[in-house]
């Protein structure tokens, strides 16, 4: 039933070592953004240009503006994601406008999940999700390198077992 360790008490006072996300996730998201909005701009431009006149085709600039804005937003959002493995708990911070910081003690973890969708797999990415007994706990680290995701999963599971506590 004992949780935590004596060594943990000393390290928690200092600033934790933050790890950012690998650039793969940003690349994937930007590529998806460019592909979808590029297609949209093309469709809008062609359709309006053919059926309503060349002046109307200027509306195709709208998706392009969104693209430029989204490009910046994605970069800011990607930079805001950080996580830190401390001796006894995992820290995750994210968000630019709506900031959120989550602390999950290893002993409370019920399940660690590694997921990877088809697009993510193509880009060689995987996400790690932590579940505790509280459904409100929202601890996901997206866009990790699969090897790193697996290392994190194994380490979290191991630490969780060592410090395990019930409800």
């Amino acid at each position: 039933m004992e949780t935590g360790s004596a060594a943990g008490a000393e390290t928690t006072g200092t600033e934790p070592e933050w790890t950012g996300l690998p650039p793969g996730l940003l690349r994937m998201r930007r590529l998806l953004l460019v592909v979808w909005l590029g297609l949209l701009a093309l469709a809008v431009g062609l359709l309006l240009g053919l059926f309503a006149g060349p002046v109307w085709a200027a509306f195709a600039l709208l998706p392009l503006a969104v693209l430029a804005w989204g490009w910046v937003l994605l970069g800011r959002n990607w930079r805001s994601w950080r996580y830190a493995e401390r001796a006894d708990d995992l820290l995750i911070t994210r968000g630019v406008l709506w900031r959120e910081e989550t602390v999950v003690p290893y002993g409370r973890m019920q399940l660690v999940e590694v997921t990877s969708g088809p697009v993510e797999r193509h880009f060689g990415l995987a996400s790690v999700q932590l579940h505790t007994a509280a459904a409100a706990t929202d601890a996901t680290i997206p866009g990790l390198d699969p090897a790193e995701a697996e290392r994190l999963r194994d380490r979290l599971t191991e630490l969780g077992e060592a410090r395990s506590a019930g409800l």
Binding site: E101, V103, R108, T137
Partner: peptide, 15 residues
């Protein structure tokens, strides 16, 4: 002892 996780949230107006 019953706390499962702790979160801090801050919106733009709050900041």
């Amino acid at each position: 002892a019953k706390v499962q996780s702790v979160r801090l949230t801050q919106g733009p107006w709050g900041r």
